[in-house]
């Protein structure tokens, strides 16, 4: 568990320790670059994703198509930029949902004594769910109903985000509960309680700022996890539909063309790997920086 002394230390110490972690600095930088690219890339790039050009099918890389084209002559680079938007959006929203639930359950369990046992049993129950099979079943069976309700892209987006969020909050909840329990024993919290601070005020003024670090680390690692999960689902053909390709979907569609245009599978795969790697490094660096004992790696 992360020690909280770190948060009371001056911020410069945090930055110094963070900067010492080369991987994290590079990871953070590349992650920011990728975010920027998928955000403004599709606006700047001359080819639109999904623009069919029957005369330019299955091309190799060239200046006008740096990643080549697919079997309908669509530019792969444009597709990767556009697909990255969806992939990363899914990652961020799913991670947000997971953190929200995790934080709520964790802090409530830590703060309210009579809720502790039932909430932790609930957490145990969710930990006992076979996540991947369940995700597959749910998405396979429900995607068309939701597609009908919310429209093509929004339906599957909501389903995937909700399912990833609902099945990945448990670790955050456990860690946060432990943090809160430890904090409650500390003098300044005891003092604040003695001074009559209401529970909500206590959470806002003392607990939340002190567990922010843990939440941020969980969020970074959660982002990596959400992206991997979404890509895996898409790779199994159960994620986003072919007309709204994410990186995972592009990779899946590209596997049939492995011998003809391997780039169709390699590039999206590289992008997933790079993003996840950067997020993991960033998470590691943040954790180490928050933990003055340093270098403990993942626990």
């Amino acid at each position: 568990m992360t020690d909280l002394l770190a948060l009371n230390a001056p911020p410069t110490g945090f930055w110094r320790r963070f900067q010492r972690h080369k991987g994290a600095v590079i990871g953070g930088g590349v992650l920011a670059l990728i975010l920027l690219a998928v955000l403004i890339g599709p606006i700047l790039w001359p080819h639109a994703a999904g623009q069919i050009n029957v005369t330019a099918r299955n091309l190799g890389p060239s200046l006008s198509h740096p990643m080549g084209t697919d079997h309908l002559g669509r530019d792969l680079f444009a597709a990767v930029l556009q697909g990255g938007r969806v992939t990363i959006l899914v990652g961020i929203v799913a991670m947000g949902l997971s953190i929200l639930i995790g934080a709520a359950v964790g802090i409530l369990a830590g703060m309210v004594r009579w809720l502790d046992a039932p909430l932790m049993r609930l957490t145990d129950l969710f930990l006992a769910l076979p996540v991947l099979p369940l995700l597959l079943v749910t998405i396979m069976l429900w995607r068309d109903s939701l597609r009908g309700l919310f429209g093509a892209e929004a339906g599957i987006f909501l389903l995937i985000v909700a399912m990833i969020g609902l099945t990945s909050w448990m670790q955050t909840a456990r860690i946060l509960r432990a943090e809160v329990l430890a904090l409650k024993k500390r003098e300044f919290v005891t003092a604040a309680t003695a001074l009559g601070l209401r529970p909500w005020g206590l959470i806002r003024r003392h607990i939340l700022p002190n567990v922010m670090g843990v939440i941020i680390v969980s969020a970074t690692l959660g982002l990596a996890n959400a992206i991997i999960t979404e890509s895996a689902l898409s790779f199994l053909g159960l994620g986003f539909p072919p007309d709204h390709p994410t990186w995972g979907r592009l990779l899946f569609d590209g596997t049939e063309y492995l011998t003809l245009t391997p780039a169709r599978a390699i590039w999206p795969g590289l992008m997933i790997t790079l993003t996840v790697l950067c997020a993991n490094y960033l998470g590691d660096g943040l954790r180490d920086a928050l933990d003055p004992r340093g270098g403990l790696g993942r626990k």
């Binding site: 999904g50 069919i52 029957v54 079997h71 309908l72 396979m140 995607r143 068309d144 597609r147 093509a152 539909p241 072919p242 007309d243």
Partner: peptide, 26 residues
């Protein structure tokens, strides 16, 4: 889906707009 994409493009050339949908076979 390939057929859908192609037909949509050809119909766009004669001024007909198409919205595509792909539904799970089951």
């Amino acid at each position: 889906q390939t057929t859908q994409d192609l037909l949509k493009a050809w119909w766009a050339e004669i001024g007909v707009a198409t919205e595509l949908r792909a539904i799970a076979p089951a």
